[in-house]
């Protein structure tokens, strides 16, 4: 069976342009290829500015790659074709507050994807929005709320509702859990895992938290300076980190203590 998502030779260059001089090319990502199967959870890890966020944005369609293709179900995703992309890939942003329009009610915002991508009439759309809001653990009444009336966790649920509204096959979450406090984070993780089981969604998580990754991810993709360092099953990678960089990324709090002890002993 062909994989759900296939990323082929993706690279991204930024041009730092200073006035009229020819710009300096900076490579954010180079030659990234990976696949994702249906229902699988992929975690993208890496240090700051390793290109993990850029990769997530390119897959979600926020940015366009300099070269390379993304295939979903054997179909090539076109650049800037948001209608095609939003049927299969949706994104949950890091800052749920910034990703919601302050001036529109939750219902109006959730109506956007349905209005422009489905043939549903207004009453059917409203019913669907209510269903999805309840599915993510909110009330149907929250459709009338403005974003500033909700707590952070609720806003993140709204963002998830927006992501699953069109029943996509892949949801990209760019540090979506980082801004939440631990108990809310646990709730959101459980919600995401529930949705995965019910709807068979594949996730791409960008995260720097080794605990979360260990808990949820099936596979880990490790990036360094825009290149893939490792792409492996989670358990295998946690058991035997292949090099120092990966080991540093994967240290959980328990591991840190061991490392400190080891360091103290060496001294």
């Amino acid at each position: 069976m062909s994989p759900l998502l296939e990323v082929k030779n993706l690279s991204k260059n930024y041009t730092h342009k200073a006035h009229f001089l020819p710009g300096k090319q900076v490579s954010a990502l180079s030659d990234i290829s990976f696949t994702l199967a249906r229902g699988e959870i992929l975690a993208i890890m890496g240090e700051t500015s390793s290109g993990k966020s850029t990769l997530a944005k390119i897959v979600a369609g926020v940015e366009t790659p300099s070269s390379g293709d993304i295939w979903v179900n054997g179909q090539r995703l076109e650049k800037h074709n948001y209608r095609q992309r939003c049927q299969v890939i949706r994104m949950v942003f890091q800052d749920s507050d910034a990703s919601l329009n302050r001036q529109l009610t939750i219902g109006e915002q959730l109506d956007e994807p349905l209005r422009f991508n489905t043939d549903l009439v207004a009453t059917e759309r409203r019913r669907r929005i209510r269903e999805v809001l309840q599915r993510v653990g909110l009330l149907a009444e929250h459709a009338e709320f403005f974003p500033h009336m909700l707590a952070t966790g609720q806003k993140q649920r709204v963002a998830i509702a927006r992501a699953i509204l069109l029943e996509p096959q892949i949801v990209v979450a760019d540090e979506a859990l980082a801004a939440l406090d631990p108990s809310v984070r646990a709730q959101i993780i459980n919600l995401l895992l529930d949705l995965q089981q019910d709807m068979g969604i594949s996730y791409i998580f960008v995260s720097h938290s080794a605990e979360i990754v260990k808990h949820i991810a099936d596979k880990i993709l490790v990036l360094q300076h825009g290149k893939i360092v490792e792409f492996k099953e989670t358990a295998a990678l946690f058991d035997a980190p292949t090099d120092d960089y990966i080991e540093r990324l994967l240290v959980t709090s328990g591991h840190i203590k061991q490392q400190v002890d080891k360091y103290a002993k060496e001294q």
Binding site: A60, G61, V62, Y82, R83, R85, C86, R90, M91, F93, D95, A98, S99, L100, N101, R102, Q103, L104, Q109, E112, P113, F116, N117, A159, R162
Partner: peptide, 25 residues
């Protein structure tokens, strides 16, 4: 900004982004 990007990813046409998404803000 994120909310405009989110609306763009929702597949909203440009006129909608300008009139309904950005304008109220």
């Amino acid at each position: 900004k994120d909310y405009v990007i989110a609306s763009r990813l929702n597949g909203c046409p440009t006129w909608y982004l300008m009139l309904r998404v950005i304008m109220p803000n």
